[in-house]
Write a protein that binds this DNA or RNA. Sequence first.
DNA 1: ATAACTGCAAAAAGTTTGCATCCAT
DNA 2: ATGGATGCAAACTTTTTGCAGTTAT
Lengths: 141, 141
Amino acid sequence: MNVQEAMQRLKDKGYKYTDKRQDMLQLFSDESRYLAAKDVLEAMQKEHDGMSFDTIYRNLSLFTDLGILEGTELNGEKRFRFSCSVDEHHHHVICLDCGKTKHIHHCPMDDEPVRSSGFEVVGHKFEIYGYCEECKAPAAQ
Amino acid sequence: MNVQEAMQRLKDKGYKYTDKRQDMLQLFSDESRYLAAKDVLEAMQKEHDGMSFDTIYRNLSLFTDLGILEGTELNGEKRFRFSCSVDEHHHHVICLDCGKTKHIHHCPMDDEPVRSSGFEVVGHKFEIYGYCEECKAPAAQ
DNA sequence: ATAACTGCAAAAAGTTTGCATCCAT
DNA sequence: ATGGATGCAAACTTTTTGCAGTTAT
C-alpha cells in the first residue's frame, strides 16, 4: 500500500481527497510504523492549524475500513500503520517505544491444534513486543 | 492457580483476605474464561449490594500484579482470567462471544525469524479469536 | 448543487484517583 | 491500633457523535 493506491481507493469509493487526508496518508507512508491517534494529531497540527481529533479518528476509521491502514491495540490505545498484510500473510515484532515493526514470515495459524479447537476462527493476533535496536539502549522500558 | 493458592499468595504479601476478594476469586475459578470488569461487577452485585467498579478495578489490578490473574485486551476493554500461563507456556483461542478459551500448545516465539529480528523481546501475544461451539450458531457475530 | 468533510462541543465508555470511613489483622 | 480495603464522587483518557458550516466533486 502507498499513497497513490490509497488515493485511488478513496476516489473509487466516492470519497473525497482532501489536503488533510493526503497529509495523513503521507505521514503513514513516511513513518512505516504503528502510530497512535495522538501521534497523528501532533504531526498533522504542524501543517494544519485547527486540526482536531475528530477528523483524525474519522479518517483512521475510514482508512481502516477501506483496507488502507491496519490497526492494533496496545495499552488501551489503538494504533495504526499503512496496511501491509494484503501483500502476504505475516506478523510483526513491534517496538514498544517508537512503534517500529519488523515482519515475521511465519504463521502459526495453520497448525493442527488450532484447526481442531472446534472454534469458528475469525481472526487472530500474533504480535511480539520489545525494543528495536535504536530504542533498546536509551529507553530500556 | 486456584482460590487456595491465590488466598495464600495474598496472605504472604500482607494483603487482607476479604469476603469480596474471596468471591471475586471464586468467580474466576468457576468461570474459567476471560471476564471484563463489567462482567465481574454484574456477578458480584448479586451477592454484594453496594459493590462498585473501584474495588473491582483495584482488585483486578492487584491480582494481576500478584500473578493470580492474567489479562488481555479486546475491543478496547481489558479482560481477565485465572492465570494459567504459569503452569506451561501456551496461548489461547478466545470466544469473542463469551470469552471461553482453549489452549494452543505451540509457541511460535522460538522461531528463527523472531530471534534474529534484532529486537529485545519483552513479551508477545498470540491469540486467536472466534466463536466457540456454543456461541457459533446463535450469535454468529 | 450536493454529498462528503470538518470543527466545535458534548457525550460516551472504560478506567483511575483522592479522601474519609471501615474492617481484618 | 494500624495499615490495608472500600465506597463515593470526581477526574481522566481515549474515542464517538450531533450539529451546523465548509469544501471537493
